[in-house]
């Protein structure tokens, strides 16, 4: 099963490589990875999506917790949560396709954020499934380039991942 694990990490050099290294060292999977500083400059928040059965996920969280740089973590998929990913897509936009791209973007509540005579750059947010669907819809028109941020997430309600 797919899990989204969010980690508060010391914002120190080498901390990220320890997390990433752990996954390859222990033969765990990383599907997406997203990391940025939080409102507290001493902490980064890292979100990783991974796939594994309960035993594997238990090992992943235990080993992550063991890293000295990991301050706190939560498996968001254990409860209700909001999952978002942002994607920028460059699509070939010539002739009739220009309208088609725009219409499809509207359906997905995506925005065209950059335009040239031959290319539209579309920005879209949503969960991974929505982004995949958008890519499928655009594929016949001609996708030139895709940039995805990887999943970020947060628990619904009062639950917090903070110090």
């Amino acid at each position: 099963m797919r899990h989204i694990i969010s980690i508060l990490l010391e914002n120190e050099p080498g901390a990220l490589s320890r997390v990433v290294g752990l996954f390859s060292q222990r033969n765990f999977n990383i599907e997406t990875l997203n990391v940025a500083p939080t409102e507290d400059p001493s902490l980064s928040r890292l979100t990783v999506t991974t796939v594994g059965d309960d035993r594997v996920i238990e090992q992943i969280t235990k080993h992550l917790n063991k890293l000295v740089d990991v301050v706190k973590l939560v498996d968001l998929t254990e409860g209700n949560h909001i999952e978002r990913e942002l994607m920028l897509v460059k699509v070939k936009a010539l002739g009739a396709a220009r309208d088609e791209v725009k219409r499809t973007a509207d359906i997905f509540r995506a925005q065209v954020v950059d335009v040239t005579p031959s290319v539209y750059t579309v920005q879209i947010t949503g969960d991974g499934g929505k982004l995949d669907a958008f890519i499928q819809a655009m594929a016949p028109i001609g996708i030139l380039e895709v940039a995805r941020t990887g999943v970020s997430g947060i628990a619904r309600g009062d639950k917090l991942l903070s110090l």
Binding site: R55, E58, Q59, K62, H63, N65, K66
Partner: peptide
């Protein structure tokens, strides 16, 4: 003392 050692290979 190390939680990751528990149930790693044998439940």
């Amino acid at each position: 003392i190390d939680p990751s050692s528990i149930s790693k290979t044998v439940r």
